Amino acid sequence: MSEYQYYEFQSLDRPLSRGEQDQLRALSSRARITATSFTNTYNWGDLRGNPRHLVEHYFDAHLYVTNWGTHRLMLRLPRQALALPTVKPYCLDDHIDAWTTRTHLLLDLTSEDEGGDWIEGADDSLAALIGVRDELATGDLRPLYLAWLSALAAWELEDDDDEEYLSFPEPPVPAGLGELTAPQRALADFLRVDADLLAAAAQASPAAPKKSANPTKKELVPLIATLSEKEKDDLLLRLALGTEPQLRTELLHRLRGTTAQARVPGRPSAAHLLDAAHTLRTARRQHTEHERAEARARHLTALVREADSAWQRIEAHIATKKTTAYDQAVALLGELRDAYAHAGRDAEFRQRLSRLREDYQRRPGLIHRLDHNGLR
């Protein structure tokens, strides 16, 4: 398989100037560059620019996918939309990083899985993920917690220090983990969040408060009344200047700050969450095995009821004298053996098998297959 790297950058809060587009063109002659995006695929070589630098100076979102298992999402938000101290408890090793510039907060979320299946083009789009940026800007921290779960699973595989597990705390658990939005489900898939780990975390997550994405006048009037005159003057001035496309999002965040999704304290250590996930995983596997056993029992019961028809099919397969038909006959005999055993009629099966072997003792290919499969 040849090397494959996919880079996508999006500018959401403002278009790129012609000069900025020219600067980006100097990094790649093949990339598709518009006033709001930079997209390129590499089958050899690499992007000449540093993605962190590009997001800091040009873009609000970046997606990176490779055929050796790297999934990376970077987001840039205005500093007033999301505070670094709020993010820091969710940062873990190299999988989740956050830092600030003079004007923005940046997130870097990474998942690595060298052994995972990869289909070219399957993950090559920011469209399904970009909604988590607005969710974070309005106080919904579920995307951060999902990234932390992804990092925790990877950290568990990489780290051999049990003492660190005992002391590493779970960050605050946001509300609504049991009812993720579409962008959050896409993020969980992209970062390969373990389903049992998410289910264990959701047990401690309160229900998300119900609120409209587009607030009503009735909802906003009392909230605006709580703002001071100075805050209102500042907001009106910034609105009049017209240089901040994200101002509405910031304002809604400030107005709804007191009703943002609740968070409950995390468990005393990540090990407690991993243990809870292990318990759920074990119970799920046992339930699945039980269901399979019941389905197998129903199948064997039905087969033994139709035993005469099955023996006729076996005879018909053998009569063709074809090797593939012999294989089909032997496979069906194996199923019949299990069906008779399930019904407590082993002796009856052995008698009929003995007669069949005697009838076809001059078919060495068939006899060899019967012996090889323990049908003696």
Rank of each mutant, 00 (worst) to 15 (best):
L126P: 03
R267C: 02
R248E: 12
M74A: 01
D113L: 01
H368F: 14
Q328V: 06
L109A: 12
R363V: 13
T288F: 08
R337T: 03
A225D: 12
E163L: 06
V132W: 00
T70E: 13
Y360G: 08
A154K: 04
Y145R: 10
R285M: 13
I130V: 15
L106C: 03
M1E: 15
A260L: 04
A310C: 03
K88I: 08
H53Y: 12
L166F: 09
E163T: 10
L241Y: 00
E114R: 07
S29V: 07
Y340Q: 07
L24H: 00
G116Y: 14
L239Y: 12
G176S: 01
T323F: 14
A204R: 12
L63Y: 05
S205K: 06
A98W: 13
P15M: 07
R192P: 02
A151I: 14
D194E: 15
R48W: 11
E156A: 14
V193G: 04
V65C: 04
T86Q: 03
L187C: 00
E291R: 15
S111D: 14
L300R: 04
I96M: 11
Y165M: 10
I96C: 10
K322D: 15
A26G: 05
V87L: 14
W155Q: 06
F38D: 02
K218P: 04
G257R: 01
S228T: 12
G344P: 03
S125Y: 06
P265K: 01
E289P: 07
N214K: 14
Q23W: 03
D189Q: 10
V87Y: 02
K217M: 15
Y360S: 05
T282A: 13
